[in-house]
Design a protein around this nucleic acid. Structure first.
Length: 483
RNA sequence: GGCCCCUUGGUCAAGCGGUUAAGACACCGGCCUUUCACGCCGGUAACAGGGGUUCGAGUCCCCUAGGGGUCACCA
C-alpha cells in the first residue's frame, strides 16, 4: 500500500505565525485523515537568521495547537537527521552528481557582477535573470579563479525551451516555461544548499508523497521539478494552498497585529478554537456546522474542498468561535484554564484568598461574558475593585424606593450566602414590598457596584459575603446623604 | 515589468449547466432577562465588467479590470 507521507518544514527564522500554523494544520489533517505520516523538518540553511530559540518556539507552538508529528525533529526516524544543517554531506553528494552529469556548474560571479547584470537587464526592460556567463568556463579559467581564492557557488543549468507542468491538487494544471527562469544557485559559495535544492533532496529522500505548502511556493515549483528530473527522483504530488491575508488584503505580517501563535495564547485564545477557526480558512466541510472538534475536522478533511482564493483573517469570527469554546467548557475546566491569567493580574492575592467554592462561583459568574480567557481579569474586576459610582447609577440611587430596598436588603441577608439563595431572597424583598424585580435589583446593583451593568447580582453578593455587601450598601447611603 | 495564481454579500464560504444563489461571523430588529452579556427568532446584504458557447451560465471559453504571489548565494 502506498502510505501517504507529508511534511511541515518551517524555517526557524521567527516565531510560528498564523500562515505557518495553517500549513502545518492542513498537512496534519491530511496525514491523519488518510492514516499517513507527518514529518517535521527544520529548514535552517539560512544560518544568519535561524536560531534554536525560534526552532523551540515553533515546536512549542505546534504542541500547544495539538499538532503532533510522527517523524522528524524531536521524534527521530529512519530518514534523519531532520535539520538541514545536519544534512550537508547529503546535499554535497547530490550537488556533485549534478556537476558530473553536466546539469550544474560552478559560478564565480561576484555579488557586484551579478548586481550590475541585473541592473543592465532591468534598464533594457528585460526580466532580470542570470546570464549564464559561467556556464562554459574553460579549465584554465576555473583554475585561475580558484587560484585567486574565489569560492564558487553551484548553479543548476536550466534546460532551454521546456515546459514544466504541475498538476496541483488544489489549483489544477499549472505550467511554466523554462526560458523564463535563469540558472539558479543550488549550493552557495559557503557550501550551504539553497532552499530549492535542499527541499527536493529531502522530500525525495524522506519519501514525501504530498507536498502541501503555501501558494507563495508555487512559482518555485518548476525549479524543483527540474531537479527531480535531473536526479531521477520520483516527484511528489503538490498542493499549494492560498495565502492568509490581513484586513487590507495584503499577506499577513507583523503590522496586522498579532501574528505569532504564542501571542494568541497570551491573549487567551484556546488552541482548539484557533485550530477550528484556521481549518475553516480556505477549507470547508460538506455540512453547515462551524464548530467542529479536531476529530470531526480530520474525518471531514480533503484537499478537494480546499479553496483556491486567498482568505482574509477575520478576528471577529475568531473571537466568536473562542467564546463558543469557552462556553462549552465545564466550569471546573474553565476555572483551571483561566487561573494563570488571574495569577498574573493585580487580583492575584484576592483570588488566592477565595475558597474553592467561591472561586468556582467567580468563574461561573463570568463564563458567558468571556471572549477570551484573558477577559476574565476585566470581568472580575468589579468584585475586587473599590466602588466608584457612575453618573447613571447615582441617578438610580436617587429613586424614592431606593432607601427602602437597601434597608430591606441589610435586614434580610442571611449569614451564609449561595447565589441561588440570594436570588430567592431578593425576589422575596420585591414580593413583600410589592416591587417589580427590576426595582429591587437595579438600586441594589447600583449601590453595591456603582454600575448599571455587570454580572449576575446574586453571584456578586455571594462573592462579597454578608459583611462586605452591607458595608457597600451603607457606603452608598452615606454618599447619597452627602449629596 | 515578465511569469504564475485568484475574483459569489463587509468577512469566511456552499455551489461543480437548470437553486427562491446555502450556512457562519459582523451589522440591524425582536424575544428572553434585574442590567449588560449569553441564548433564541427574524432581517439587510453577493455571482467584478464585457464578449462568446449553450435551449439555458455564478458554474465552460476568451478579453478587460482589480487583487495577490514570485522573479536572491531568504525560505
Amino acid at each position: 500500500m502506498n502510505q501517504i507521507k507529508v511534511r511541515f518544514a518551517p524555517s526557524p527564522t521567527g516565531p510560528l505565525h498564523i500562515g505557518g500554523a495553517r500549513s502545518a494544520l492542513f498537512n496534519y489533517l491530511f496525514a491523519r485523515h488518510y492514516g499517513g505520516a507527518l514529518v517535521l523538518r527544520i529548514e535552517d540553511t539560512d544560518v544568519e537568521r535561524s536560531s534554536r530559540e525560534y526552532e523551540e518556539e515553533i515546536i512549542a507552538s505546534l504542541r500547544w495547537l495539538g499538532i503532533d508529528w510522527d517523524e522528524g525533529v524531536g521524534k527521530g526516524g529512519e530518514n534523519g537527521p531532520y535539520r538541514q544543517t545536519e544534512r550537508l554531506p547529503v546535499y554535497r553528494q547530490y550537488a556533485e552528481l549534478l556537476l558530473e552529469q553536466g546539469d550544474a556548474y560552478y559560478c564565480f560571479c561576484s555579488e557586484e557582477t551579478l548586481e550590475e547584470e541585473r541592473q543592465a537587464m532591468l534598464a533594457q526592460g528585460e526580466t532580470p535573470r542570470y546570464s549564464g556567463r559561467c556556464r562554459h568556463l574553460s579549465e584554465e579559467e576555473r583554475a585561475s579563479y580558484l587560484a585567486q581564492g574565489i569560492k564558487p557557488a553551484v548553479r543548476f543549468q536550466v534546460p532551454p525551451r521546456q515546459i514544466y507542468v504541475v498538476d496541483d491538487l488544489v489549483r489544477g494544471r499549472v505550467s511554466f516555461e523554462s526560458d523564463g527562469i535563469g540558472d539558479f544557485v543550488i549550493v552557495r559559495s559557503d557550501g550551504l544548499p539553497t532552499y530549492n535544492f535542499a527541499v527536493v533532496i529531502d522530500d525525495a529522500l524522506m519519501g514525501i508523497t504530498h507536498v502541501i505548502r503555501a501558494e507563495e511556493h508555487l512559482s518555485n515549483t518548476p525549479r524543483q521539478l527540474m531537479i527531480y528530473e535531473a536526479l531521477h527522483f520520483k516527484r511528489p504530488e503538490f498542493a499549494h494552498i492560498s495565502l492568509i491575508l490581513g484586513n487590507d488584503r495584503q499577506k499577513m505580517s507583523k503590522r496586522h497585529g498579532a501574528t505569532s501563535l504564542m501571542q494568541y495564547r497570551e491573549m487567551g485564545y484556546l488552541p482548539e478554537a484557533l485550530v477550528n477557526f484556521l481549518s475553516l480558512l480556505g477549507w470547508s466541510p460538506e455540512g453547515e456546522e462551524q464548530i467542529m472538534d479536531i476529530e470531526q475536522i480530520i474525518a471531514a478533511f480533503s484537499l478537494e474542498r480546499v479553496a483556491k482564493s486567498p482568505a482574509v483573517f477575520d478576528l471577529d469570527k475568531l473571537n466568536w468561535m473562542n467564546g463558543q469554546y469557552i462556553r462549552r467548557l465545564d466550569v471546573e475546566v474553565l476555572a483551571e484554564r483561566v487561573r494563570p491569567f488571574l495569577m498574573a493580574s493585580p487580583y492575584r492575592a484576592q483570588v488566592e484568598a477565595l475558597s474553592p467554592q467561591h472561586y468556582l462561583w467567580l468563574v461561573a459568574m463570568v463564563k458567558d461574558r468571556l471572549v477570551s480567557l484573558s477577559d476574565v481579569v476585566k470581568q472580575v474586576s468589579v468584585v475586587f475593585e473599590p466602588v466608584s459610582y457612575a453618573a447613571d447609577a447615582l441617578e438610580v440611587l436617587q429613586n424614592e424606593n431606593t432607601p427602602l430596598v437597601l434597608q430591606a436588603f441589610i435586614a434580610s441577608l442571611p449569614e451564609s450566602l449561595e447565589p441561588e439563595a440570594v436570588k430567592q431572597q431578593l425576589k422575596m424583598i420585591g414580593k413583600q414590598h410589592k416591587l417589580k424585580p427590576r426595582d429591587v435589583f437595579m438600586p441594589l446593583r447600583c449601590a453595591l457596584s456603582g454600575q448599571m451593568h455587570g454580572p449576575e447580582l446574586p453571584s456578586l453578593i455571594s462573592l462579597w459575603g454578608k459583611e462586605e455587601s452591607i458595608k457597600r450598601v451603607q457606603h452608598s447611603l452615606e454618599v447619597l446623604a452627602g449629596k
